[in-house]
Amino acid sequence: MAGRVLRASIPIVLLVAGAASIAAGVKFNTHEVLAQIEQKQSAPKDLPGGPSAMWMQRGTAGQQGPQYIATWLKETEPQLIQEVTVGGLRLAEGGKIERTYSGDTPSLCPT
């Protein structure tokens, strides 16, 4: 009898745990991702935390090209899943997550 109750309770407990994990993934599992976001206007002279370090100019000096600003984005777990399907995330120095691309999302995972 006790064995049967135990056997019947295992899948129920697993179902509840699985559903709770899904809910946690959708609701709470948010992470900061360092992304290079294309910026339309020119770089401002002063940005808090080191202006020149925050800005990247594509191409050689003096050339006009898209400008990118390093930005921390909050991404939910579904967004992280979408990013990894194109090989779009890696672990940077210091344990931070960063995008492997700047500008448009790649269409394919490089592996």
Binding site: I12, G18, A19, S21, G25, E77, I81, V84, L89
Partner: peptide
């Protein structure tokens, strides 16, 4: 692929694990 990539970025994949546990339990 999601489990492997989340392991690489040190994030626990709650959604993927939850889905596999629910399907497995059923």
């Amino acid at each position: 692929g999601v489990l492997a990539n989340f392991s690489a970025i040190h994030v626990f994949p709650f959604l993927a694990v939850g889905l596999l546990v629910v399907i497995g339990a059923l």
